[in-house]
Nucleic acid binder design. Structure first.
Lengths: 133, 133
DNA sequence: ACTATGTCTATATATTTAGTAGACAAGGAG
DNA sequence: CTCCTTGTCTACTAAATATATAGACATAGT
């Protein structure tokens, strides 16, 4: 799968929050500045992550974001699936986002892409935020 | 990497030509019909493959396309790189199409994507058309 | 000449990407 | 109770990419 800029930002932002997990909230502007992410764009990303239950927020003065789960309970695959969709190279090799595509015509070719999907999927599912601190 | 429809078509078309390698040319329309590829789109794809030296053509009546190399000399990685560009998930994990991207900030994160790139790259470089017949 | 093929360039449309803008909501400090 | 600070929500936009379609042209064979 090809990662969008948005996914890259999301991962960096979550890792940032993971650093202060259990201790303090961080403001959007702090995370944005600290990671070179456009602030208004990061707002949207956090809203999406919040909607999916990965972060929680507080409003007003002293507001900000923090992780809603422990860093070892958030893996890379779920974040990327949330933001970018399928991990597989082709829809017909995807489990969560299956769709028919031309390569299905050739079983061996399809198997190649399934092998790749399985590797990527394993790797990303087995990597959690705490591995990246 | 995410495969475009165009890459899927290209691979199927090349596999089709691989079947008759050394024996006969195939017309665009035959390859298109046989693989459910829009004919005018396949024309463009073949032109691109020809420009890169993977197929050769003959014009006029009895014209058509054939592979310019043996099926075991064409691997999937080079075709996908030609059509879609980088195999890596992020530009900063790419060898042939390197560019700076946000994940570089976190070395461990970057390494994950390099590991994935290496697997994908090995897999696709080591699979040639003759494996898919 | 005529027909069947590949060649080349332009155009079209929809979707995705990567943001920006601005009005609104709510919590804390004085 | 008002102001300031922060998050929320929705809309908008500009550029790139994906997925084709169209048509005039070039060339080979009969």
């Amino acid at each position: 799968m090809r990662l969008s800029r948005k996914s890259e930002y999301a991962l960096l932002a979550l890792i940032d929050l993971a650093h202060s997990y259990g201790r303090e909230r961080k403001k959007i502007i702090e995370v944005a500045n600290g990671n070179n992410i456009p602030k208004k764009y990061l707002e949207q990303i956090f809203l999406q992550l919040k909607g999916a239950g990965y972060v929680k927020s507080a409003r007003g003065a002293n507001g900000g974001y923090e992780l809603a789960k422990a860093p070892n309970e958030i893996n890379l695959a779920e974040i990327i699936r949330l933001i970018d969709g399928p991990l597989a190279s082709v829809g017909s090799a995807s489990l969560y986002f299956f769709e028919h595509t031309p390569v299905e015509r050739n079983k061996k070719l399809l198997q190649i892409f399934k092998d790749i999907r399985n590797f990527v999927s394993d790797k990303l599912e087995n990597t959690t935020l705490d591995h990246l601190l």
